[in-house]
């Protein structure tokens, strides 16, 4: 006599539970809960100095308030505007110039020293000059994001176009592709993985650039709020801003993951 099917279903229940408990997602979540619980307990028992570290509960309250009173939205939009404008401009410019440098070799050879110089330069050092010229408005921040993002994008596009396999170029030539057509049909798609890698580095660097720029000089924005709340010892608020900023960064990086997977479906 075999086991009735009902029995098997019952025995598989705990197995499924075990599998759930062991899944990496569940474990990650458990670790997060443990950290938050430890932080809260540490704050309440006085092991952690709440003056510097606050507590998750106090931070949550502040975070909720910001969400409700529109403060979060306001500063997010201010930062987001400059960030998106800077990133879009940098990707458009960097990808175009980088690909052109890789494909039109003479152009690349002429421009190469400048690219190396500017990419080595700590561009945040230019920020005071930019403020001087363009004031402390959105334009300055857009420019600083642009400068942060443009070089990794440009450099990767340059390398991507330069390393297009000779074989694939020969294939294009054999089938009668003109120089310009080779660029769109072969070089551009062959450089795509490099381009995407450049975008990834660029958008991450852009986040750092805008937050630091807002520390230095801004009338509003996420980085400015972190700086202001820290300077006025509103520690719970400060942590809330830090966490929101980190969440945005995480969303952007995850978004890049999906974008990368979507563009590289064939790989």
């Amino acid at each position: 006599m075999g086991t009735p099917p009902g029995d098997r279903l019952e025995t598989s229940e705990p197995a499924r539970l075990r599998a759930f408990a062991r899944s990496p997602g569940t474990l990650s979540l458990l670790i997060l809960v443990a950290i938050l619980a430890g932080w809260e307990a540490g704050g309440r028992t006085g092991v952690l100095d709440t003056f510097f570290f606050s507590t998750p509960s106090a931070i949550s309250v502040k975070a909720w308030e910001m969400l409700i009173d529109g403060n979060l939205l306001f500063h997010t939009l201010r930062t987001g505007y400059a960030y998106v404008a800077g990133v879009v401009a940098a990707i458009a410019f960097g990808a175009t110039v980088g690909l052109a440098m890789g494909w039109w070799r003479r152009f690349g050879d002429v421009v190469d020293p400048y690219v190396v110089f500017f990419s080595a330069m700590p561009r945040i050092a230019l920020f005071p000059v930019i403020i001087l010229i363009f004031g402390i408005g959105d334009l300055s921040r857009t420019i600083i994001v642009f400068l942060g993002v443009v070089f990794p994008v440009l450099f990767n596009a340059y390398i991507g176009a330069k390393q297009t396999p000779r074989l694939l170029i020969d294939v294009g030539r054999v089938f009668g592709y003109s120089h310009n057509r080779l660029f769109t049909a072969v070089v551009l798609p062959a450089a795509l993985p490099y381009l995407i890698a450049g975008f990834r580095i660029g958008v991450t660097l852009g986040i750092i650039m805008i937050v630091v720029a807002e520390f230095l000089a801004a009338s509003a924005g996420l980085g400015q709020q972190i700086a202001v709340t820290a300077q006025s010892y509103q520690i719970a608020e400060m942590w809330a801003w830090v966490l929101y900023t980190s969440c945005y960064a995480l969303l952007i990086v995850r978004g890049m993951d999906y974008f990368e997977r979507w563009t590289m479906r064939w790989a």
Binding site: L167, L168, D170, V171, V186, P189, A190, L192, W266, A267
Partner: peptide, 9 residues
């Protein structure tokens, strides 16, 4: 071509 030379994309 010996190495095929297909566009992987």
């Amino acid at each position: 071509f010996q190495q095929f030379g297909l566009m992987p994309w």
